[in-house]
Amino acid sequence: MPQTLLALNWKMNKTPSEATAWANDLKASLQLGEAEVAIMAPAIDLQALSWFLKDTGVQIGGQDVSQHESGAYTGEISAGMLKDVGAKYAVVGHSERREYHAESSQIVAAKARAALNAGLIPIICVGEGLEVRERGEHVSYTLDQLRDSLAGITIASAEQLVIAYEPVWAIGTGKTATAADAEELAAAIRSALSGLLGEVGAGVQVLYGGSVKGGNIREICGQPNVNGALVGGASLEVQGVLDMVNALK
């Protein structure tokens, strides 16, 4: 299985000057250990982070990416733009994008393809809301979302994919799916990936996202099919990141 990935999603937090200060504090204390650390920062922060984190092994990524390569799309950030400032990853289909911006899985798939075409690794997010889970339909719902979000992605390009399972009811609520809950969906996702993509699918990283922090990350990432975490609130403070990195050693 691939190296554990700790993807830090800052959401709409940190100005460039705040991001720079955070990066300098991280550099002073971070010893990477077993995990790859990647910061999914607001696009306006990426240039500064790329400069201040060079030669540290810490990666950067976009929180979203346009499905279009270029053109008259005011406010959009293309995959090529992200790549040019040193990004390795791009998050696509985060639950907040799906909910607040009405992004369908078809749009998510188009964004994932755009990322792949530019040489970025898309982190494709899938997961269910509380109502779906309470009906006991969380597995089938998430797998349907996964299949639709992978539309048009070839086996050849699938080696450069990451899937993040994020139960929507556990994001920013303080509620956390148990390690067993995370493993249930991660195993189902891996099985579906193997069916869709063959042997390549078995090697795709599957992350868990939803109120992850230093106190629970080791148990969650210790599950057989969980290869890392997509972390929100706990990523905003350097000490929180250090706690998670140390817990994974």
Rank of each mutant, 00 (worst) to 15 (best):
L32N: 00
A38C: 15
D181Q: 12
Q3C: 05
A202V: 02
Y208P: 07
G71P: 14
Q106W: 05
L130I: 12
Y165T: 03
F52W: 01
S235P: 07
A234E: 13
S17A: 14
T20H: 03
T154C: 03
A158E: 10
A247P: 10
D243T: 04
C125T: 11
A186Y: 03
L248V: 04
A187S: 15
K54H: 08
Q239P: 06
P42C: 06
K213M: 02
L242E: 10
I60V: 14
A202E: 15
L185Q: 03
I121Y: 04
D144K: 06
L146V: 10
G57T: 05
G172R: 02
G232R: 00
Y89R: 00
T154N: 01
Y73D: 13
H101C: 13
S105D: 15
V200E: 12
Q63K: 02
A118M: 12
N227C: 13
S29K: 13
T154G: 08
I189P: 10
A19P: 02
Y73H: 15
S211G: 09
I171Y: 01
S140D: 15
I123T: 05
N216C: 11
E199G: 06
A23Q: 02
A170S: 14
L8N: 00
A182G: 12
G232V: 06
T56G: 07
S95R: 01
A41R: 00
L30I: 15
A182H: 01
A229P: 04
L197C: 02
G57M: 11
A90M: 07
S78L: 09
T142P: 15
E18H: 02
W51M: 09
I153M: 04
T154V: 03
V245Q: 02
S235R: 00
Y141S: 14
A187I: 01
H138E: 15
L236C: 05
G75D: 13
V226G: 01
E76H: 13
Y165E: 12
I220W: 04
L236G: 01
A177K: 00
G86I: 05
I220F: 09
A7I: 05
P42E: 11
E166T: 08
E103H: 05
P167L: 10
T154Y: 08
L193H: 02
I107D: 12
G215C: 02
L207E: 09
G203R: 08
A192C: 15
L116C: 06
A188M: 13
H94N: 06
A19D: 04
L207W: 06
I220S: 00
